[in-house]
């Protein structure tokens, strides 16, 4: 016999939508809002910067000026900012486990559900 799902009331639907919203905002937006997530790019300022000290040739200086930045001091933070790509292997391992574990979890649970779907679709005839 085909599975008959329960009927979900209006309040239940609202609660489900609220749960999804809380998960979305909680997992993705709140870490950004609290400054817990973000790019690790930091400037390495130099004292009394000149275009030459910043490694900018004549053509590049003209480009900076066309972009409205005529003072090397104003460009210093942009030119010297770099990402820090040092990482720990443990952190990389955690990431790999999370990504692979997530797909394994989803595919295995999906397979269980899929067999119900196929059984109901093809066995009930």
């Amino acid at each position: 016999m085909a599975y008959q799902p329960p009927k979900q009331g209006f309040v239940g639907q609202i609660v489900d939508v609220a749960v999804l919203l809380v998960m979305t905002v909680g997992a993705l937006y709140i870490p950004l809002y609290l400054g817990l997530a973000g790019a690790a790019k930091t400037p390495r300022p130099i004292e009394n910067p000149t275009w030459e000290a910043l490694g900018q040739n004549a053509a590049e200086q003209a480009q900076w000026q066309a972009l409205g930045i005529a003072d090397p001091a104003a460009a210093s933070d942009i030119v010297t900012a770099r990402f820090d790509y040092s990482f720990s292997w443990a952190a990389l391992l955690v990431m790999a486990v999370l990504v692979i574990g997530y797909f394994v979890l989803v595919v295995r649970l999906s397979d269980k559900e899929y067999r119900d779907v196929i059984a109901e679709r093809f066995d009930r005839k």
Partner: peptide, 10 residues
């Protein structure tokens, strides 16, 4: 992961 690892984990 290089530079934006925290977003990936989130």
């Amino acid at each position: 992961f290089l530079g934006y690892g925290s977003q990936l984990i989130a």
